[in-house]
C-alpha cells in the first residue's frame, strides 16, 4: 500500500500539487477572514443593514459550487483566479455571520456594567465584545476552512491545479490508485485543518470562561 502511495505521489507529482493546493487555500482563507470579519464589525451595530447583507450572502450560498465557478470564468478566466474568488464568496457568510453574532450577543449585563463604569463605545468593542466574539469568529473560520478546502479541490476541474486535478486525472483515466491516493490525501489534510481549528475554538471558549 505504501508503495502504491509513493508511486502515485511521484507519478502525479503530488508534492507540487499539494503546494499549489495549499497556496490557493491560504490566500483564499486569508482574504475571507479579512473581509468577513470586517463586514461583521461594520454591520454589528445596524440590524437593518445586517439583515440585508446576510440576505445577499445567503443567496450566494444557494448557488451550487460548480455553477459559481463557471459564473466567474468570464470574469477571471480559468485556473486559480475564479477558484480563490469562489472560496472567498462562499466563506464570507459563515465568517461575517459568526462575527456578527459574537459581537452582538454579549450578555447585556456586561455591556451595561461596562457602560456604567465609564467605557466608551470603542473601548467596549475592543475590550469586551471582540474578546467575547473570538470563539464565535473561530467557529465561522472553521466552517470557512471546510468550504475553502472543498472549493479548491473542485477547482481542479477548471484547471486550477492542486489535488483536485489529480483526482480528475484518476477519474478520466480510470485509475483507482490515483483516485484513492489523491482523495484520501486531500481528505486527511482537510480533516487535520478542521481539527486544529476546532482545538483553537475550544481553547478560546474555555479561556473566556463562558463554558
Amino acid at each position: 500500500m505504501i508503495e502504491t502511495f509513493q508511486m502515485v505521489w511521484n507519478s502525479q507529482d503530488l508534492g507540487t500539487k499539494t503546494i499549489e493546493h495549499l497556496e490557493m487555500f491560504f490566500w483564499a482563507l486569508l482574504f475571507s477572514i479579512l473581509f468577513g470579519i470586517l463586514i461583521g464589525i461594520l454591520i454589528y451595530k445596524k440590524k437593518q443593514l445586517a439583515d440585508i447583507v446576510f440576505q445577499v450572502l445567503n443567496i450566494i450560498e444557494l448557488i451550487p459550487t460548480l455553477a459559481l465557478l463557471i459564473l466567474l470564468l468570464p470574469l477571471l478566466g480559468l485556473g486559480s483566479g475564479p477558484t480563490i474568488a469562489a472560496c472567498i464568496l462562499y466563506s464570507l457568510l459563515p465568517i461575517a455571520r459568526n462575527t456578527y453574532t459574537g459581537l452582538v450577543t454579549v450578555n447585556t449585563q456586561y455591556l451595561q456594567a461596562a457602560q456604567g463604569i465609564g467605557l466608551s463605545s470603542k473601548e467596549i468593542l475592543l475590550n469586551i465584545r471582540i474578546p467575547y466574539a473570538l470563539p464565535h469568529i473561530i467557529g465561522g473560520i472553521r466552517i470557512a476552512i471546510v468550504f475553502t478546502m472543498g472549493v479548491v479541490t473542485l477547482g481542479g476541474v477548471i484547471a486550477a491545479g492542486g489535488l483536485g486535478q489529480s483526482i480528475q486525472t484518476g477519474l478520466q483515466f480510470n485509475r483507482p490508485d490515483i483516485i484513492i491516493v489523491s482523495s484520501i490525501w486531500v481528505g486527511i489534510l482537510a480533516v487535520l485543518f478542521d481539527f486544529f481549528a476546532g482545538v483553537v475554538e475550544r481553547t478560546l471558549t474555555r479561556r473566556n470562561h463562558l463554558g
Partner: peptide
C-alpha cells in the same frame, strides 16, 4: 463532512 465533496464523489 470535512472531506471535500469532490473527493467523496471520487472515492
Amino acid at each position: 463532512q470535512a472531506i471535500p465533496s469532490f473527493a467523496v464523489l471520487a472515492l
